[in-house]
């Protein structure tokens, strides 16, 4: 008797579980796996996460995230979300390229979207998100060349990979464009467009490196620095904060650092926006509407996928002429009359 009763009890619990889990599964769940910078890096991963949070607020999706602590975590992190109830998995970062491909091919029914990577040929269940960041960085380079007082500006990167160096390419070419147009001789330290060599911290984590690299560039005379290394740049901002913004200004990347790093907002001249939040949102929207397809989405100046942030507190420092020139160049880039790729 008691055995049958406990059997029924077990059955009821199992049924309750089934109902519970199917109810949970009916809501769309978007999951993000961060790179080693972490979800709160004020920059890269955080911007992508903002896209998911926006979708949470506007489309009512559920969300989860997993942080990678090392490169060895990529694969197991993807695996642990496969068993879960993720309708769409976002892997954030170029370095996820191999792991995402492997997981996507092994699990053709699971939708993926990867930031900063595209597959050729396209994988049907992966939406890659690329950004023409050099378009916005070109404007930043032009701006920095127009603003520098020492005639030297600097940049450094996290790791020598395309989504990082594309910032530096645009930055250098924008400064060169300024030189060509105004007959100046502003030099950019930290990146050589032709030899593809430059300054790299070789990580996306160390704030100490961010400070040390900025110090080196400052010692070489740079008064505006573009760190392209996620949270590493926060260390550079600390240095600028101590030296004062008249000595050293920082250009943020990915997010508008004026808002994501409010304690040191006064050191940011502007930020090169990489609107992963908007592309992530688009992908989620497409997946909900069943219009998701593998391939590549490209964010440009034209579709606001990349942009230059407002100057905020430094607005008064930027001359109206320079602002007008930047606006002209922006239009020229969109029209295609100026090529940012050299």
């Amino acid at each position: 008797m008691s055995q049958t009763r406990s059997f029924f009890k077990g059955f009821a619990i199992a049924a309750a579980f089934l109902i519970g889990s199917s109810a949970a599964a009916s809501a769309f769940t978007a999951c993000q796996i961060t790179d080693v910078g972490g979800i709160d890096d004020n920059s890269f991963n955080q911007t992508a996460w903002k896209g998911i949070q926006d979708a949470e607020a506007q489309l009512g999706v559920q969300s989860r995230f997993l942080e990678s602590q090392a490169e060895t975590d990529y694969m197991p992190n993807i695996n642990s979300l496969l068993g879960g109830e993720c309708d769409l998995i976002f892997t954030v970062g170029f370095l996820f390229g191999d792991a995402t491909k492997q997981a996507a091919e092994a699990n053709p029914d699971q939708k993926f979207s990867i930031v900063d990577f595209a597959y050729d040929p396209a994988i049907p269940n992966v939406a890659g998100q690329l950004f023409a960041t050099d378009e916005a960085a070109f404007l930043a380079g032009y701006l920095a060349a127009g603003m520098t007082e020492t005639g030297i500006i600097g940049t450094f990167g996290g790791i020598n990979i395309p989504p990082v160096t594309i910032f530096m390419d645009g930055f250098v070419r924008g400064a060169n464009h300024y030189n060509a147009r105004n007959g100046t001789d502003v030099s950019v330290l930290g990146w050589n467009v032709d030899s593809r060599e430059g300054l790299f911290t070789n990580n996306f984590e160390s704030l100490d490196d961010g400070r040390a690299f900025a110090q080196n560039l400052y010692d070489e005379g740079a008064d505006i620095i573009l760190p392209v290394a996620g949270p590493v740049g926060l260390g550079s901002a600390t240095l600028a904060d101590e030296l004062g913004r008249d000595s050293l200004k920082i250009i943020g990347v990915d997010a508008d650092l004026y808002f994501t790093d409010p304690e040191k907002r006064h050191v940011y001249l502007t930020s090169i926006l990489k609107r992963m939040d908007s592309t992530v949102f688009q992908v989620i929207e497409a997946a909900i509407n069943d219009t998701f397809e593998g391939g590549t989405i490209i964010g440009t100046l034209e579709n606001s996928g990349v942009d230059l942030a407002p100057f905020h507190d430094m607005d008064a420092l930027v001359s109206d002429d320079l602002k007008a020139e930047i606006e002209t160049i922006r239009q020229a880039i969109i029209d295609g009359t100026i090529s940012v790729s050299g």
């Binding site: 602590q69 090392a70 490169e71 060895t72 975590d73």
Partner: peptide, 17 residues
């Protein structure tokens, strides 16, 4: 074991602490 069994390649972070 890590490079031959898990990663199939080496990158700067493969030792992972």
């Amino acid at each position: 074991n890590q490079v031959l069994g898990v990663l199939d390649r080496a990158t700067p972070g493969f030792s992972a602490g």
